[in-house]
Design a protein around this nucleic acid. Structure first.
Lengths: 224, 224
DNA sequence: ACCAATAATAACGTATCATTTTTCATAACC
DNA sequence: GGTTATGAAAAATGATACGTTATTATTGGT
């Protein structure tokens, strides 16, 4: 009987290390091209090298770092072209997620969406910009999970993290954050109202706008 | 089968182990629920446990095995529901790939497609069923790569492997293989002729048919 | 200034120890 | 007599330390 294998949920050192290093990359502590030396990390975290290596390999297969055999590990150096490619994929998959979210909408998810909408609206009125990042994360994951498709959730989360780590989105200056929030509200309202095509359309526009904002921020960055 | 281990020290051991174990899962040698014991594998391949573990963790992050801390690793037990979910994702992404393939079509890719079409046609006429599996693989990867989107290629390859490993497609008996080949030919012809919408439409139908064939084969399997 | 030889460094893989889980046998209880 | 508890032994994973090999940096010589 293989049943009770999947139940338990303990946390191992390598799991913590993985989360830790990934966070450092997502937060920009480790930047593209930085070398991640096993021994240094091991000393820094006061553990042996094995869990470090396991975490690094895991990060590699998700595209966050790049390992060159016999040389070492560096934080992935993602080109703008690749980021734009990821936006293209996101466009397809978030539209799919929106469609599925409408199809599979149940009462529990519905109330989650409504709660989220109100939260975002309150945040916008108070102009609590500090909460924008967390809220953005929360909205995305609510949308991703409400599609009720395990693999889709994993892929979208991965791509979303990827964008977070490597696309330095210049939100604050462009006022894109507010616009993005409002787009999200409309998307969520469409889902709650079960308007499939509207939800798909709004999602497509939303990603398109995000992509444009990214391209814009890249251009500005190059000029200086 | 495990003989050629000492030759070619060019790539690392963990890389070979990863490919080896993944192949065993894809070929059905290791089935869902099977335990993968580090020590057993290490003895079987005559190496130490470290490279085995690295390979296993890598397989985990791609969804082929499942590890439970302090307990061990088992080959993922994928439900029919999850397979169908993956078909849903494939539908979106292969349609996207078809669209991109048309948009980014260049002469080199074009001739590859034409060569592939002829190859498949010849194979169909001769009824060389043994080649079907390889050809299917070849066609898919030609389509995936011609979208010229690195991440999309990775995701599609992963999902394709996933289907291969866990959906036991009953091709031969249903005549689905021939039908699938013909669908592929039409898709590739549409791409070569730069008919975007036709390529998208045919791809969508193709995945839909594959999904139906899978569901059919599952039903039959349950009856016996 | 450039090339070769050597030393230092870091990744790769093995061996070993420690901890946890599982299994199996014995015993107690219903 | 059969089922469940308990505990010790075996087995498997988690982590560390160590040796080896390959790459990189440095030094010395031409």
């Amino acid at each position: 009987m293989v049943s009770n294998w999947t139940e338990d949920n303990l946390i191992s050192i390598r799991e913590r290390v993985y989360i830790h290093i990934k966070d450092l990359i997502l937060e920009g502590e480790f930047k593209a091209g930085d070398r991640l030396v096993e021994r240094e990390l091991a000393e820094r975290l006061n553990i042996s090298r094995t869990p470090i290596r396991e975490a690094l390999f895991r990060l590699e297969s998700q595209g966050f770092v790049k390992t060159v055999p016999r040389k070492g590990v560096i934080v992935a150096d993602i080109s703008e072209k690749e980021i734009i490619e990821v936006f293209t994929i996101l466009s397809s998959l978030e539209v799919l997620a929106a469609k599925l979210a409408v199809q599979k909408l149940d009462d529990e998810t519905k109330s989650k969406f409504i709660a989220c909408i109100n939260k975002v609206k309150a945040c916008l009125q108070d102009k609590r910009e500090s909460d924008y990042s967390d809220l953005h994360f929360e909205m995305n994951h609510l949308l991703y999970s409400s599609a009720k498709n395990t693999k889709l959730y994993e892929i979208l989360s991965g791509l979303s993290d990827y964008i977070k780590a490597f696309a330095k989105l210049g939100y604050k200056k462009t006022g894109r954050a507010e616009q993005s929030m409002e787009e999200h509200i409309k998307i969520m309202e469409a889902i709650v109202n079960q308007e499939t095509e509207m939800a798909e359309f709004l999602t497509k526009i939303h990603i398109e706008n995000s992509r444009k904002a990214y391209i814009e921020s890249v251009k500005k960055g190059e000029k200086k």
